[in-house]
C-alpha cells in the first residue's frame, strides 16, 4: 500500500509532519479485544511526544489519558480510531469508536463505576477509574455518545513551556 506524499507509516500508525516539524498529526486504528496490542498506540504517541521535546509532565499526562481511552475502545467496542495532532502549544487526541455507545455519560464518569466483566478485571482493568483519570490529567475533555452511534472522546493537553524547536529529533 502506498501513502499520499508526506505521510508515513511507522509502527502502528500513519503520521504526517508539517510546518518544519513543529506540527504533527496521525491516526491509529484500534481493534476491539486485541489485547496483544492493547495500549500500543498510546505508547507510540508517548514516544513521538518525547522525540518532539515536549515537557515531561505533559507527556506523562497525555500518555496516561490516551492509554485509558485506548483501553476503553479495546475493551468495550469492536473497533475505533485514535487521531492526534501536536502543535507548538498543545496536543489534542480524538477517539472515535463504533461501539454501542455510553447511555449515561455522567454515571460512566463516576469513580468506581464499571461494567467490565470478570475476565477484564483479571487483566487489571475495570476499576471504573479510566474516565475520571482522563478528566484529571487533561486541560479539556469532551465526550459525546448516543446508544448505537458509538462514542467520541477528545481531550487537549496544553504545553506550559516553550518548546525548543532547534532540538527536535527525527521522528
Amino acid at each position: 500500500m502506498s501513502l499520499a506524499a508526506g505521510y508515513m507509516k511507522k509502527g502502528l500508525g500513519i503520521h504526517m509532519m508539517q510546518n518544519k516539524e513543529t506540527t504533527m498529526k496521525g491516526v491509529f486504528f484500534l481493534t476491539g479485544k486485541d489485547f496483544a496490542n492493547a495500549g500500543a498506540a498510546s505508547c507510540e504517541l508517548k514516544t513521538i511526544l518525547e522525540k518532539m521535546q515536549i515537557e515531561q509532565s505533559a507527556i506523562r499526562r497525555a500518555a496516561i489519558a490516551a492509554f485509558e481511552a485506548e483501553m476503553n475502545i479495546i475493551i468495550y467496542t469492536p473497533a475505533g480510531m485514535m487521531k492526534y495532532s501536536i502543535t507548538p502549544d498543545y496536543v489534542k487526541v480524538v477517539f472515535q469508536d463504533m461501539g454501542h455507545g455510553i447511555e449515561d455519560i455522567e454515571l460512566a464518569m463516576t469513580e468506581g463505576y464499571s461494567t467490565a466483566p470478570d475476565y477484564i478485571r483479571e487483566m487489571g482493568f475495570g476499576s471504573g477509574m479510566g474516565l475520571p483519570n482522563i478528566k484529571k490529567n487533561t486541560d479539556e475533555m469532551k465526550i459525546s455518545s448516543a446508544p448505537g452511534a458509538g462514542t467520541t472522546l477528545e481531550f487537549i493537553i496544553k504545553f506550559k513551556q516553550e518548546r525548543d524547536n532547534e532540538n527536535i529529533r527525527d521522528c
Partner: peptide, 17 residues
C-alpha cells in the same frame, strides 16, 4: 510491584514512567 504479568502491564508502566 504487581501480581499481573500481561503485556499491558509493561505498556502501563511505559506510559506512567
Amino acid at each position: 510491584i504487581t501480581g499481573l504479568v500481561d503485556k499491558t502491564v509493561v505498556r502501563t508502566a511505559h506510559v506512567a514512567n
